[in-house]
Nucleic acid binder design. Sequence first.
DNA 1: TGATGATGTGCAAAAGATTGCACAACAAGG
DNA 2: CCTTGTTGTGCAATCTTTTGCACATCATCA
Lengths: 335, 335
Amino acid sequence: MQKSPATLKAIAEQLRVSVSTVSRALNDHPRISEKTKSRVKELAEKLHYVPNPAALLLKKNKTYTIGVLLPFLKEEFFSLAISAIEDTLMPEDYHVLISQSRDSLEREKKMIESFIASRVDGLIASVSAETNHYGHFKALEEYGIPVVFFDRVPRNIKCHKVRNSVTQGAKEAMRFLVNKGVTKIGLINGPGNLEVSGERLNGYLEAAMEFGIDARQHYIKSGNLTREETEQCMMELLALEDRPQAVLTFNDYVALYAMSACRKAGVEPNKDILFVSFANLPITSFLENPPIASVEQFASKMGAQAANLLLKCLQNQESELDYQEIIIKTELIIH
Amino acid sequence: MQKSPATLKAIAEQLRVSVSTVSRALNDHPRISEKTKSRVKELAEKLHYVPNPAALLLKKNKTYTIGVLLPFLKEEFFSLAISAIEDTLMPEDYHVLISQSRDSLEREKKMIESFIASRVDGLIASVSAETNHYGHFKALEEYGIPVVFFDRVPRNIKCHKVRNSVTQGAKEAMRFLVNKGVTKIGLINGPGNLEVSGERLNGYLEAAMEFGIDARQHYIKSGNLTREETEQCMMELLALEDRPQAVLTFNDYVALYAMSACRKAGVEPNKDILFVSFANLPITSFLENPPIASVEQFASKMGAQAANLLLKCLQNQESELDYQEIIIKTELIIH
DNA sequence: TGATGATGTGCAAAAGATTGCACAACAAGG
DNA sequence: CCTTGTTGTGCAATCTTTTGCACATCATCA
């Protein structure tokens, strides 16, 4: 009853030729006659022949599987990126294996072991909020598995990166607020080990310098991106005597958490205190009072670029050495 | 430079024993001496030996990979379910291959072909909004690949299902509204080919009957779950002379779309017109005026149950015949 | 001492696809 | 007629792991 998938052998027997002839026919080997080729291809089509991935892995050492490792699937930024990654890799006949680190370093390590066990051909990753060293990623490279980081890329490490012009974006956001006459601006940033946090901070500080507003130390908060810590940060900002008039947040989710903390404290977000965030996720369009502006990060574009870069790595292994860095320009979207 | 993963052969050579001895030692074969076993296991550990999945597939005809097919990753309901599926399957050493149908039947078919090509051991699926026949799923069963449907399960088809007591939930939602004194209640439902749409409608109609309110035909709308059609449905409801006082929506996203349509029309949602939705996703907690109630569907629990059912199918193939149906009780959450 | 049983290990085949090499058939040229 | 070249196909090894069978060693018992 239970059909098993067609094999070269099955085709060969039906056609009374050898397995090698079938293999060569399907691969358009020049030494196979046109007549044989068409007979083979026809039957293969009819039987829905698909090469057994096990055999391919054994012979070619390729699984045609790409791992994607990211913090949270439920964050729209990442699910948008994944869709773009899928759309880029699927036409090239790659499968996509997705795993969530849930911002835990331990899980991230486990997932990488699992990727090695399943012999992925390459990895696209956005590191967890806890990640402060990268030895587990190095292990992949030792096995010749190329890794492309996107968005949350490692600090001070030579690797393939696809990232945003975050510093630039932060500065623009600040300029926007300053132009509105706001001078007291808070920052709820992500953890310091992320390069993207450092860049936001740089943009914030550079802008403060350039626009002559003072970036007081107590305006700058940094959390681990969870709801709890973010609300805590926001509470601290609200408790200040010279409470900021606006807050720049690490991303839209942090903005949502912070805004809900405001409401709990009886402060109306985007009226009493303005928010500008990063990411510009569709989700914010459902809010009555969304952040007044957001630095668009083009999640889809980042995902697509990361996937394309990985494809390049897989095609010519020479280029594994000179690491590429692709920077996607952000854009301030005013709501 | 480029290490390749350790093989049985490599271990065997270093230990000057045969490959079969190594294999048996790692599998705790009784005929292998304890001394040999510990020598082998030690070295295997040291070399980070992991069996080559290709060889396992060839010998055992198993990939230890489970496919998950669902409409949209970006919908929190599904990403919550996926996390639960991962948490259930990973301890059993299964990998999870995720694909999105994006509510397109054509994509759904393609993804299933791809799952067959990669020889998944089983599939967990939630069908697309367009799906009105199930031949492509039947193909999986012909290859002996068990399928468990969750949430959006097929209509009138014998199969493994994990679903909610949706009819019950819809009735409770209606009771809640009627108790508030609301009698004119609209319904923005999903497409008719989904069983879950039929159940919502049944609940709506049964409640109308039971509570003696008239369920006028023009209060009942059914869309394809996209933003566009949903807004269209809402517009039609708003345009009615005897405009409904409340609307029951297929899920939270439909509620968000409908509510935004209201605002565009100058109608304040949950003040001028009340909303009750399905799913109760965390996302709604960020709204200032969320739907006044939501039928909690317990996405995580559904995912976990679906994964467990699939595991059972994989363990004893006898039970493939008697299809199971697991019903998760919904719960009305008042916001 | 030769038979029996227990214990530990190795050989070889099997799964599916690819590929270098060998071989057969045939035509053309000397 | 024999050589050379071309064309089409098959054989066999290879990748890694598992497993039935065979074999060797040693102890035990009649």
